[in-house]
Computed example of a mutant assay.
Amino acid sequence: MTIDFNKNIDGLVPAIVQDAVTKNVLMLGYMNEEAYKKTTETHLVTFYSRSKQRLWTKGEESGNTLDLVDIKVDCDNDTLLIYVHPNGPTCHTGTDTCWSEENKPSFGFLSELESTIHQRKTEANSKESYVASLFEKGVNKIAQKVGEEAVEVVIEAKDDNDDLFLNESADLLFHYLILLQQKGFQLKDIVKVLQDRTEK
């Protein structure tokens, strides 16, 4: 990997720090060649502090270190993308990121759908909401719907109609997300179980 530390007079390159699991951007720092070498040697992300005018390992005082996973350089060889496992909050203010955002996993549209399901769960008028009516009927009804949709998926999987298979699969996933919330869980909890299994 070639990094052009000579593009800027001060010999610094921007270093974007991203959580290797959640993919959230945690902070932006700067590295010179010495900081880069120390990072790769210790596997603890180290920057060059422009205010302190010295090398600075993230978490050297707070203990909230950034464990190095990988480093990539951009197409111009003058910006780094650093994948990390954060140990505690990243920002000096105590927040997960320097943009005051919670460093939680996001599954794109599925996370939006989970949010909508949660909103429907808390709505008072269940007559206008299919999801709210399911929550009102309780876990047995929701589990029954998941079972019915699972059977439909199996049936369509043995046929040749891809549209029906995909639609039944969507119905299964939708009702499973409802069941998860009825039991007090979210998709992230299932992902955590799968991740733990891969580490064994």
Rank of each mutant, 00 (worst) to 15 (best):
residue 77 N to W: 00
residue 101 E to T: 10
residue 86 P to S: 07
residue 120 R to M: 13
residue 67 D to Y: 10
residue 119 Q to R: 13
residue 70 D to I: 02
residue 122 T to F: 03
residue 143 A to D: 07
residue 71 I to T: 10
residue 141 K to S: 14
residue 96 D to K: 06
residue 69 V to H: 07
residue 97 T to N: 09
residue 140 N to E: 14
residue 81 L to Q: 12
residue 131 V to Y: 05
residue 123 E to H: 04
residue 163 D to Y: 12
residue 150 A to E: 09
residue 93 T to C: 02
residue 146 V to D: 07
residue 129 S to I: 06
residue 132 A to Y: 00
residue 154 V to Y: 08
residue 136 E to D: 15
residue 66 L to A: 02
residue 108 G to A: 11
residue 67 D to M: 08
residue 120 R to H: 14
residue 96 D to H: 12
residue 131 V to E: 12
residue 145 K to W: 03
residue 98 C to N: 03
residue 164 L to K: 15
residue 109 F to N: 08
residue 163 D to F: 13
residue 137 K to C: 04
residue 148 E to P: 06
residue 154 V to G: 01
residue 127 K to S: 04
residue 72 K to C: 04
residue 105 P to V: 05
residue 123 E to N: 09
residue 71 I to D: 06
residue 158 K to P: 00
residue 87 N to V: 11
residue 142 I to C: 08
residue 157 A to Y: 06
residue 105 P to C: 01
residue 136 E to K: 15
residue 156 E to A: 15
residue 115 S to Q: 09
residue 102 E to F: 04
residue 122 T to P: 00
residue 166 L to T: 05
residue 84 V to Q: 07
residue 159 D to E: 14
residue 151 V to L: 14
residue 59 G to C: 12
residue 125 N to Y: 07
residue 116 T to L: 11
residue 99 W to S: 14
residue 137 K to F: 02
residue 120 R to C: 15
residue 165 F to R: 13
residue 95 T to P: 00
residue 164 L to W: 03
residue 59 G to D: 05
residue 144 Q to D: 13
residue 52 K to F: 01
residue 144 Q to G: 09
residue 155 I to Q: 14
residue 76 D to Q: 06
residue 65 T to D: 01
residue 154 V to D: 02
residue 119 Q to G: 12
residue 156 E to M: 12
residue 84 V to R: 05
residue 77 N to D: 06
residue 151 V to N: 10
residue 157 A to G: 08
residue 48 Y to G: 05
residue 130 Y to A: 14
residue 132 A to P: 05
residue 61 E to N: 10
residue 115 S to A: 13
residue 73 V to P: 00
residue 143 A to K: 11
residue 78 D to S: 09
residue 135 F to Y: 13
residue 162 D to E: 12
residue 94 G to A: 05
residue 95 T to Q: 08
residue 68 L to W: 01
residue 145 K to C: 01
residue 143 A to W: 05
residue 131 V to S: 08
residue 89 P to K: 10
residue 121 K to F: 04
residue 104 K to T: 15
residue 132 A to E: 09
residue 118 H to Q: 13
residue 86 P to T: 02
residue 110 L to H: 03
residue 73 V to G: 02
residue 115 S to R: 04
residue 146 V to E: 08
residue 117 I to W: 05
residue 149 E to L: 03
residue 99 W to C: 11
